[in-house]
Amino acid sequence: MDRYENIAIRAALMLIGVFFIAVIGLAILKGIDVPTCITDFPPFKEGKVIKLSDKEYQVQILARMWRFEPNRIEIPAGSKVIIYTTSADVQHGFEIEGKAVNLMAIPGAVNKAEVVFNKPGTYRFVCNEFCGIGHQAMYGEIIVK
């Protein structure tokens, strides 16, 4: 292999090495991770909000053709929310804009994410996976007071 090709390969390997370490480091050290496999929570049939404590809530989001249940959630600032998602019909997406929380809602499977809402405001969540002709109207809001 030509000498300059080797330099290019090493430089590229360094770049993607830095990227990979930065990304995996964030997951391990700061817990900013992607959804994983959970088997202790069966697919549920209705959405609900459970208050675990003043600052901790568990929300079951049921996505269905063309509405989230619930699609309006009010919580105090600083609270942690444990979100479970599944679907009652076709594949949906559940994305909280500006929070980098992005879950698929798949029928026959349960997805999970944990997110903390420190700043008060209205956080919009939308369906980002095509689910039929009502897909573009499917959204909800988390109001943090």
Partner: peptide
């Protein structure tokens, strides 16, 4: 010239990549 182009591309890639990396940290932090 190809080496100069390649180094410029790698710097551009690092800048664009880290801008989304910090966006992730800000989004997940707040």
């Amino acid at each position: 010239g190809a080496i100069a182009f390649f180094i410029a591309m790698i710097l551009l890639y690092a800048i664009m990549w880290f801008s989304i990396y910090f966006l992730l940290i800000i989004y997940r932090g707040g």
